[in-house]
């Protein structure tokens, strides 16, 4: 047995759910492997204390009033203005446009599962990117033109990568590496927008 396969069995061994034959094989490996002895001991000694950790903990203060306030704010005219800005940006943002098209075109079953995989990954990022783009638009005149050029050039590179990752995931919706690649594209896009927004506020 390799360390890798031994490690995969440690949790069920500690939980007592491992079949006798596998348990024996694991014990044999652990008897001659110092590394796996450490891992088995660590898993065994932590299992109890971890189970005893409280599932819920109350925040030090009541957060609801603050949350409630932000809910109301989201639904007042400010939101409408943001939505209007979003509509404007949609026209400019190929990523978003492509996503919306996905939603409309997902008619056949296979496409639907590909599109569903894409949606699972992209949920949240698109809205976030729109909000950031709106914020960036507001701070645009505070950024040097060269900076705007740099940001836009990099956003283009990322947008192209996102489009390609999305197409690949649609073809192979169960592929975890493709899900991670697509998610990374969105993370990078949002990170870059955040960096740009920060610059527009700080410099």
């Amino acid at each position: 047995m390799t360390c890798e396969s031994a490690r995969n069995l440690i949790d069920s061994y500690v939980a007592g759910t491992l079949a006798a034959r596998d348990a024996l094989a694991l014990e044999e490996h652990v008897a001659v492997c110092a590394e796996c002895t450490i891992d088995l001991a660590a898993a065994g000694s932590l299992a109890g204390p971890v189970r005893a950790l409280p599932r819920r903990m109350d925040p030090p203060g009541d957060l609801w009033p603050a949350v409630r306030q932000r809910l109301v704010r989201k639904r007042t005219p400010g939101w409408g203005a943001l939505a209007a800005a979003a509509v404007l940006l949609i026209a400019l943002t190929s990523v978003v446009t492509a996503l919306l098209l996905d939603r409309r075109d997902a008619t056949t079953a296979s496409l639907a599962s590909g599109a569903a995989a894409v949606r699972m990954v992209e949920a949240g990022y698109v809205e976030q990117a729109l909000e950031l783009e709106a914020a960036l638009e507001q701070g645009r005149e505070r950024l040097a033109p060269e900076t705007i050029t740099i940001v836009e050039r990099n956003l283009d590179v990322i947008a192209k990568a996102i489009a390609e990752s999305r197409a690949a995931l649609e073809q192979d919706p169960a592929n975890q590496d493709l899900r991670i690649l697509l998610r990374t594209g969105h993370e990078q896009r949002v990170a870059l927008l955040e960096q740009a927004v920060r610059l527009s506020r700080e410099l």
Partner: peptide
């Protein structure tokens, strides 16, 4: 994906490129 094993394989390395 394709997997390579070096020694006992105790560290984990993932390499991903589209």
């Amino acid at each position: 994906p394709v997997r390579y094993l070096l020694g006992d394989g105790s560290a984990h390395i993932a390499v991903r490129s589209l």
